[in-house]
């Protein structure tokens, strides 16, 4: 007994050291990689065992998606389709067909407010919003013409040959609104196959949380304040979910005191006006992305009616900075004071 007492200081210090190591080893360590892909900032945090390569694989997949769906890249599949699909049917890879058919379904689902064929209209506004064509707003006739081309009916998919063609010239597909959500869905697949317990995928503002939070109750996802730096509130989530936000503050140009931004109403042909931002919380990233874009175009009343009818969770911010909720979103939301 005396001997034990003699070595007591060493025993105490040793156990304190062990305790420190235990604290460090208690959970799988998060590791974050960051990169630019799909024209946006990507951040992938996985909680994993050492030497796991899931993050790298996800990033590789994002870059692969970019090489297919970036319509401004001359080597991409979508560029090829947009350029030649009227002249002759273009063979498309299954991933392209997959996203195209899903997007068309979502277009019907949102009653046309999300439109994957909105390319011509985007091109009309792109120069204005990027500030290349500063003084002039597009001519109303040009906008009207672009609307008439931007119809999903003009897309013809031949499922048997895996080919796509356009019924009229000038049709242009634009997956910019949904490719990030689609990418997050695919990232979740990779995580599942790799047996990763938990992860956070940030694909340029479309956030996917995967699994349960690490040693705490909630994943905390901040929602960007639409009119100033910082967040307007935090979403507390307990399990796998994709959060997607569309807002008029992302890419815009103010001309004559009016804000012209990159989210276009496919029916009027002009940037949407009624809402500042729409955040959708759903298990499906593609749906989150498409619906957040669509609700921006629907406006408050129609948007809320639509979201309630489909029982989707959404957070809508109107110009008076009031926050509207549908589904159970209010119970997840915690305003930033």
């Amino acid at each position: 007994m005396r001997r034990i007492f003699k070595y007591l200081p060493l025993i105490i210090l040793a156990s304190a050291l062990l305790f420190a190591f235990w604290v460090n080893k208690a959970e799988t360590k998060p590791e974050t990689i960051r990169d630019i892909a799909m024209d946006t900032f990507i951040e992938i945090t996985t909680y994993h065992q050492p030497r796991d390569t899931a993050s790298e694989e996800i990033l590789k997949d994002f870059k692969y998606l970019e090489s297919i769906f970036n319509r401004y890249d001359e080597n991409s599949v979508v560029y090829d389709v947009n350029k030649h699909a009227f002249e002759k049917p273009i063979s498309i890879p299954s991933i392209f067909e997959n996203l195209l058919t899903e997007s068309l379904k979502l277009s019907d689902y949102t009653e046309g407010h999300f439109n994957p064929a909105i390319g011509p209209l985007v091109d009309v506004w792109r120069k204005v919003i990027k500030g290349e064509d500063i003084s002039n707003l597009p001519d109303i006739n040009i906008v009207k013409e672009a609307i008439s081309i931007s119809k999903t009916e003009n897309i013809i998919i031949n499922e048997r040959n895996g080919q796509v063609s356009f019924a009229i010239p000038g049709v242009s597909l634009d997956f910019g609104a949904v490719v990030k959500g689609f990418a997050v869905d695919r990232a979740f697949e990779i995580l599942k196959n790799k047996g990763i317990e938990r992860a956070v995928i940030n694909a340029g503002g479309t956030i996917g949380v995967y699994g349960s939070p690490p040693g705490r109750k909630y994943w905390r996802i901040g929602i960007q304040h639409p009119r100033k730096e910082g967040i307007i509130g935090v979403l507390n989530l307990t399990s796998t979910m994709v959060i997607s936000t569309s807002g008029d503050y992302e890419r815009y140009k103010i001309i004559d005191g009016k804000r012209y931004h990159h989210l276009l109403n496919p029916f009027t042909g002009y940037p949407t006006e009624e809402l500042l931002s729409v955040t959708i919380i759903n298990k499906n990233g593609l749906l989150s992305d498409a619906v957040s874009t669509a609700v921006m175009s629907m406006g408050l009343e129609k948007g809320i009616e639509f979201l309630t009818q489909k029982s989707l969770m959404a957070i809508i911010i109107t110009p008076d900075l009031k926050i509207h909720f549908t589904g159970d979103a209010e119970s997840l939301f915690q305003p930033e004071l």
Binding site: P9, L10, L13, A20
Partner: peptide, 13 residues
Amino acid sequence: LPFLLLSGGVAGV
């Protein structure tokens, strides 16, 4: 603090 205390204690012993 914990690391400083720990190292101080070890050095003291």
